[in-house]
């Protein structure tokens, strides 16, 4: 039996990895994957806390988050594809039309 707090610690590690990924990677798709990692880290924490309290709220929220993440994928990929069609290259460093 693994204690709940280990899952919370793991989720904190995953969340941090996600943040680092968003900050250092340049490809929008990889940044997006890192954001998904952050959302799933939060999901893991919610499930762990829900298990600790024995209440369904945490698990319920996870289902909603999954649905929202799916919607986010749909919108995000559409936006990324639109930009790729215009530009034929994919890096956030190219998104520098507007500065200051």
């Amino acid at each position: 039996m693994v204690d709940d707090s280990w899952y919370v610690a793991l989720s904190a590690v995953l969340f941090t990895l996600g943040v680092i990924g968003v900050v250092i990677r340049r490809n929008p798709l990889v940044i997006f994957m890192s954001i998904e990692l952050m959302l799933n880290a939060a999901n893991l924490a919610l499930v762990a806390f829900g298990h600790r309290f024995g209440s369904p709220e945490g698990q319920t929220l996870v289902f909603f988050v999954m649905a929202v993440a799916a919607a986010e994928v749909a919108v995000g990929l559409a936006i990324i594809v639109t930009i790729f069609r215009l530009r034929r290259r994919l890096s956030v460093d190219d998104l520098s039309l507007m500065r200051w």
Binding site: L39, A45, F49, G50, E72, M98
Partner: peptide, 28 residues
């Protein structure tokens, strides 16, 4: 317009995951 949309999306989703993790911790 595409650039605005992509920046808004990436940073907005980034912010949402911070909010969600904060919600998870307050729930915890």
């Amino acid at each position: 317009s595409g650039e605005a949309s992509m920046k808004y999306f990436l940073l907005g989703a980034f912010a949402s995951s911070f909010l969600l993790y904060g919600i998870a911790l307050v729930y915890g």
